[in-house]
Design a protein around this nucleic acid. Structure first.
Length: 490
RNA sequence: GGUCGGUUGGCCGAGAGGUUAGGCAGCGGUCUGCAAAACCGUGUACAGCAGUUCAAAUCUGCUACCGACCUCCA
């Protein structure tokens, strides 16, 4: 499959043909979490969006190196001189070591990501493991004249930089407006200009996470780690940088400035941003306190949730919206997604039982073309899924014998669904595992159902219905089919 | 206040100058002992006002409302 992917580049505000720098290799960097709390629905969006991209690029034959960082130092609560580190603040609160917090929430993040069936990145670098490299980058920026020292901290000089380069090109900001509109926060006297940002910060005496540097004991600035680690592992020019739309400014704008100041050219060729998850129309975020963690979602333990929603329901829900549109959380929307997901997966299962005939009445090639057109058009998963639902109708009609398919087309159809559902969209079956107890359950149900079949043959509807109703009460749904019956756990 | 984006049927959510998005829910039907599922059929949708055009939900202008970023957030 040749590559026809068109992707929206935030930098140019246009959809562009994706052409990697060194095919077949692709470098992909995505901003990962700051690990000071549980992952919430908002974190699932970039994880799923870029997992989709990662999967699709690999599917089309690219060798992708996917980097997603773990921010474990330098992300401050605010930008004031005495701004607290988020990790350190949480550590104090929980009376733990900062690295204990980092480990705990990294582990929990991994578990959530695994539940969502996202593939692990190729490399998952930690900011604290790249202090030397970050210091080297700071030195380069200082040597090139774009940073200055102030009271043991190093700041990026936005004014000097903007004389030669366009600071604000990614987020569409004008430098004059930045200088006049940047909010004046307390305790920023060290900066020449409020728009300047920290590359390295001096550690106050009580600050635990600190490293020696040419400028004294301190710690790296938040924006620095991504510039540093992306270029370390992907080269000083690489293909794709992704992240949430909320990181566009200042985080990604600062990254561009840092890389350009250090190397004389930009690092990133395609900037891709996913939109936000909202709740009641408002961004779901830590600062607003309106977030639903993934664990709560999967367990239903949050008072805004009417029920639990499975990881695949959540994944399907997100994929039914385009990644660049905001997506509003609601119970109704999740419930609809759950039904849709079940319908889709039931059809995929039904596909396995379909037998080829000599006749053929369905157009698999056309369906396939439409699916690829959708995914190639800026990862348009809502259209892709709508095409796959068109195919669900075809599959169900084949299953009931209303349509016919020949061997060639059946092979193509099975491959199409296998590839898109499992490999590209990254969905999976959530039905019971194959362990000993579920196998035993299967045998018990088959036994009970054989009794019911006997009853049905004797037209003993009372017994037959009783068995079905009792099983339903136990959470087992029985459906009669032409061949016999099917059952599933509710 | 500045910059940018949005407003689509009961709900979610695509599309984007003329042709059915899709899902969920609803309604009618077929099938089935009954269910369920499935299949078939079914919706005066595009915030308002004005303009451009043979044709506008889609382009332009204005108005209203909502949101994001501008301070940490995926």
């Amino acid at each position: 499959m040749e590559n026809n992917l068109i992707i929206y580049n935030t930098l140019t505000r246009k959809k562009e043909v994706f052409a990697p720098l060194n095919p077949p290799f692709v470098g992909l960097y995505v901003c990962g979490p700051t690990v000071y709390g549980d992952a919430h629905l908002g974190h699932a969006r970039p994880a799923i969006t870029f997992d989709l991209l990662f999967r699709y690029l690999q599917y089309t034959g690219f060798k992708v190196r996917y980097i997603r960082n773990i921010t474990d130092v330098g992300h401050l609560v605010n930008d004031a001189d005495d701004g607290e580190d988020k990790i350190e603040k949480k550590a104090k609160l929980d009376q733990m070591e900062p690295m204990e917090i980092v480990q705990r929430y990294t582990n929990r993040y991994h578990k959530s990501m695994e539940q969502l069936n996202t593939l692990s990145p190729s490399i998952e670098p930690h900011a604290s493991g790249h202090i030397i490299e970050q210091q080297e980058l700071v030195k380069k920026i200082i040597d090139n004249g774009y940073a200055y020292e102030s009271n043991g901290s190093i700041y990026f000089d936005v004014e000097v930089y903007s004389k030669k380069y366009d600071y604000g090109k990614l987020s569409g900001r004008k430098i004059d407006e930045l200088f006049t509109n940047t909010r004046q926060l307390e305790g920023q006297e060290e900066k020449k200009n409020p728009a300047d940002f920290a590359l390295w910060k001096k550690a106050s005496p009580e600050h635990i996470m600190r490293w020696p540097s040419p400028w004294g004991n301190g710690f790296p600035g938040w924006h620095l780690e991504c510039s540093c680690m992306s270029q370390k592992y992907l080269g000083d020019t690489f293909d794709i940088h992704g992240g949430g739309l909320d990181l566009q400014f200042p985080h990604h704008e600062c990254e561009i400035a840092q890389s350009t100041a250090a190397y004389g050219h930009e690092a990133v060729r395609y900037w891709i941003h996913n939109n936000m998850v909202t709740i009641n129309g408002q961004k779901m975020g830590k600062s607003l306190g309106n977030f639903i963690t993934l664990d709560e979602l999967f367990s239903g333990k949050n008072n805004v949730l009417e029920q639990a929603y499975s990881p695949m329901t959540v994944r399907f829900f997100m994929l039914q919206a385009h990644y660049r549109s905001p997506l509003d959380f609601s119970n109704d929307a999740l419930k609809a997604a759950q039904k849709g997901y079940e319908r889709m997966m039931a059809a995929v299962k039904a596909l396995d039982k379909i037998k080829a005939t000599s006749e053929n009445t369905v157009d698999v090639d056309n369906l396939s073309t439409q699916c690829f057109e959708a995914i190639n058009d800026d990862l348009n998963t809502p259209i892709l899924i709508s095409c796959l639902f068109d195919g669900v109708r075809i599959i169900n009609s084949l299953a009931s014998g209303a349509e016919k398919i020949d061997e060639d087309n059946l092979v193509k159809l099975k491959k199409l669904y296998h590839d898109f559902i499992f490999d590209i969209l990254g969905l999976k079956n959530e039905e019971g595992t194959n362990d000993a107890s579920s196998q035993a359950l299967g045998k018990v149900i088959d036994l009970v159902m054989s009794i019911r079949t006997e009853a049905k043959q004797k037209k003993d509807w009372a017994t037959s219905d009783k068995i079905r109703d009792e099983l339903k009460g136990a959470g087992i749904i029985v459906k009669d089919t032409k061949e016999g019956y099917e059952w599933s756990i509710e």
